[in-house]
């Protein structure tokens, strides 16, 4: 079971995500943003939080053009698994791998706190360790986490059961309280909250553990 974590020069949750993958039993390779290829046999790609290239432009806009993200796109186009957390979610929307966009928080301020996150569907490799309707405590830490998509897209996401998580109390103005969404084939997850910060009882709680564990279960070779 192999995971790859992409490292941009401004990534700062790369190690945290790698540790969470390792705890769930993955072999993890760190992949540099200038590389044009993913390592052989990668089962899941993690695009971590941080500030990819500084994000002085729209968050994730430059990262979406980087050599490695082209490889990530090829991987997901082939049906490969990927998850983007925080800045990683922003990058996945910038590439068009996931629909929508992340705007500045409605309150215009950066917010770091643990929020109640409602599991909107248990029908994915990421969320099958939860029951739909469960409320879990997961930290957020972002300035631009205000999810936006047009009405048709939001309706489509709901129709296709592709909303993975919603906020119990919307902290940032996200449309329809959306905190995380799935791709059409349900193999790509983007979410603003940080499950890797809640995967260890010494830090931030353990409500994120089930996500990594479920993923490991699905991706374990039979």
């Amino acid at each position: 079971m192999k995971a790859a974590v992409i490292v941009f020069p401004g990534s700062n949750c790369d190690r945290d995500l790698a540790v969470a993958f390792e705890r769930a039993g993955f072999d993890v390779s760190m992949v540099w943003h200038k590389d044009a290829d993913l390592p052989e046999g990668v089962d899941i790609v993690g695009v971590p939080g941080g500030f990819s290239y500084g994000d002085y432009l729209r968050c994730g806009a430059i990262a979406a053009q980087s050599p490695i993200v082209k490889a990530v796109k090829a991987h997901t186009d082939r049906g490969g698994y990927a998850m983007g957390i925080c800045n990683g979610f922003q990058i996945l929307t910038e590439t068009g791998i996931l629909p929508g966009a992340l705007l500045r928080n409605a309150g215009l301020k950066y917010i770091c706190r643990t929020v109640g996150l409602k599991v909107a569907t248990s029908d994915s490799a990421f969320t099958e360790g939860y029951n739909a309707g469960d409320v879990i405590g997961i930290p957020i830490a972002h300035h631009d986490g205000n999810y936006f998509a047009d009405g048709d897209t939001v309706a489509m996401l709901h129709d296709q059961d592709r909303v993975a998580f919603t906020y119990d109390q919307n902290p940032n103005g996200s449309i329809a309280d959306i905190a995380g969404v799935l791709s059409e084939n349900r193999r790509v997850l983007g979410m603003m909250p940080h499950p890797e910060r809640a995967a260890d009882d010494g830090h931030g709680g353990t409500d994120g553990v089930a996500l990594f564990r479920a993923l490991a279960g699905v991706l374990t070779p039979a």
């Binding site: 700062n12 949750c13 950066y110 770091c112 930290p139 830490a141 940080h194 010494g202 830090h203 931030g204």
Partner: peptide
């Protein structure tokens, strides 16, 4: 104040701000 700061990056914050001393592993 402190919700505008990332208090949890590096995933080792054993106690974040709010009550007394902060701790990291």
């Amino acid at each position: 104040v402190y919700e505008q700061y990332d208090t949890m990056v590096m995933a080792d914050s054993a106690r974040t701000p709010g009550l007394g001393a902060g701790m990291v592993r």
